[in-house]
Nucleic acid binder design. Structure first.
Lengths: 335, 335
DNA sequence: CATAATGATGAAACCGGTTTCAGAAACAGT
DNA sequence: ACTGTTTCTGAAACCGGTTTCATCATTATG
């Protein structure tokens, strides 16, 4: 059960057994064989907690996401987990329900027992972030703060492309549905505004809305009260919510109104009409962030130079279409 | 930084400091105050790993789900996390991508460093399960195995209700789209078959399909090759996939074909038409399972008597409708 | 007042590993 | 045969807490 039992049984010292499991090459071949034989006869396996204490590293990294149930988070987690396992690390996952206080609490709780912390779109204060970074290596995504390495998914250009796309389809009045305050929303909004300005399109904003379907429903009603024919939503869930509400009110997408989302979550391909959206490379961002983090953990200081920017990309599907003068498009647009 | 530093600074023994943090009531009020003062002046906080080693418990429970990105899993995780935190436990999350080998690996890796293990719809072998249960307290959901406490979400009746619902709408030929082998699929299939038998409906099966949207697309084509007018899918994602593919082929839901899903994930309300589905109480099941697990961990042996069964419930929405002789229903069924 | 019970504290063992350091043994070179 | 390396192993300290047990001071009890 313990290392001393194995040692006794194999007639060696605990130190040797330990070596067999940590640096096998430093122990003579036959000794090693004997120890291993005894070990798996007793089916002994080193106690991870004890090992962590002794080595001062846990082989664990923590990740805090805004909302586990959100498909965007899920994709990130998945990518990170895959990367982490490749390097022999396991993952502590916490979801904060977009609630900054929870987020901080989880992060602090984890900070003490992980080798590094990956914060996805953190909402907490700068001070808190810096405090955390003082306790353990921290990398974050979609948040910019001097002194903490970050991976940014930069939708600025792609959001602009979305606007251009709508412009090309004839839309002349657009509305942006804001998400929760933070880097992502700010960049998307800026991309939207700047492109509208450049093209001379009437641009307005609604929100902020929480980044959920239900908020999208509500947003849908508000959109109805405007005369906009094109909607750019903070994320796909909101976009889908809008489309649903509009449908309930007899407004068809894309015939009457065009809608663009953000993130390109699984949802985008599942709904009808399939959603035109700005793809955010969540998996790539997660993997990259983890890579940086592991570099920091291992003392290989990569990454310390400026944040990494990964561009988004407009994906055109079926929720955007020509702006009709009064919505007089033909009904059948199946491809 | 360490407990001895605090002890020295406060002029007490390490033991006393430890007591202040574990059973504050056993130390004199003024001593306690002094220690606390010193502690947060040095902003000392007990090292969780060391504490775990000494106490023999980690304050951590592990959960393994089939697929983090699946909304059903996400809901479960969320519920479990909420419960866990209430009791001061943190969560280790692992997703197995529906791959039994991964699942086993994760479970084993976790088993050694958590106080208990929660397995959601595990696919691994009985032997492996029992081996795990021998290492640490284990509770599972949607899997039945003697000797391991479980929470079962029992869709049998509700799936039958779905069949009756379709029958009442005039459907006389139904097809079931099987999911991955396992308890859930088995129960759903049985509920489907028995109800069809009872009502004298023609029943066939296709699959098994993996429980994903993409598999649903494929299933949609296969459905087209049958003459069934009613489809009962293993889960919502598959159901939505079917609907999409049918739409691409010009078949309307629910006018031409009715579709029922399972799980009642967020997706069900997001798609159009909104999905009629058998709600599975994932959150309740997760919470209940965690409750049992914590009982076991704490030595309060609740739960050891037989598995807990939570019934499903048919939720009728807009993806099911009257079976027309040749689909000659009116087009406008907005509520 | 003597004695028992109660309460607060510290010394030391312990949880289960890792790692430094030094010594023994084997080997190479001249 | 002698010295200098190299390889292998064990003793013991250590990681940072918790907990048992004994001690001592204090208060309650007869």
């Amino acid at each position: 059960m313990s290392i001393r039992d194995v040692a006794a049984q194999a007639g060696v010292s605990p130190a040797t057994v330990s070596r067999v499991f940590t640096r096998p090459d430093t122990v003579a071949a036959d000794t090693r064989r004997r120890v291993i034989a005894v070990a798996d006869e007793l089916n002994y396996t080193p106690h991870p907690v004890a090992r962590s204490l002794a080595q001062g590293r846990t082989g664990t990294i923590g990740i805090v996401v805004p909302d586990i149930a959100n498909s965007f988070s899920a994709v990130t987690i998945k990518a990170v987990q895959k990367e982490a396992r490749r390097d022999g690390f396991t993952l502590f996952v916490a979801g904060s329900d977009e609630f900054a206080l929870d987020e901080e609490r989880w992060a602090r709780a984890m900070a003490a027992q992980v080798d590094g912390l990956l914060l996805v779109s953190p909402q907490m204060s700068d001070d808190t972030l810096l405090a955390l970074a003082g306790m353990t290596p921290v990398v974050m995504t979609n948040r910019l703060l001097d002194g903490i390495p970050a991976v940014l998914t930069d939708a600025y250009e792609a959001t602009g492309h979305a606007v251009e796309h709508l412009y090309a389809l004839g839309h002349r009045e657009l509305v942006y549905l804001a998400g929760p305050d933070g880097y992502s929303n700010e960049v998307r909004l800026r991309g939207f505004r700047d492109a509208c300005g450049r093209l001379g399109i009437a641009a307005s904003e609604l929100g902020p809305f929480s980044a959920r379907f239900s908020a999208g429903l509500r947003a849908g009603d508000l959109v109805l009260a405007t005369s906009a024919t094109g909607v750019v939503a903070y994320n796909d869930e909101v976009a889908v919510g809008v489309i649903n509400r509009l449908a309930d009110r007899g407004i068809r997408v894309p015939q009457d109104v065009s809608v663009v989302g953000h993130d390109d979550t699984q949802l985008a391909e599942m709904v009808m009409p399939r959603l035109t959206t700005v793809r955010i490379p969540a998996a790539a961002a997660g993997a990259a962030a983890l890579g940086m983090l592991l570099d920091m953990v291992a003392g290989r200081d990569g990454a310390v130079h400026g944040p990494l920017r990964l561009p988004g990309e407009l994906v055109v599907r079926a929720s955007t279409g020509p702006a009709g003068p009064v919505g007089g498009k033909d009904e059948d647009d199946r491809s």
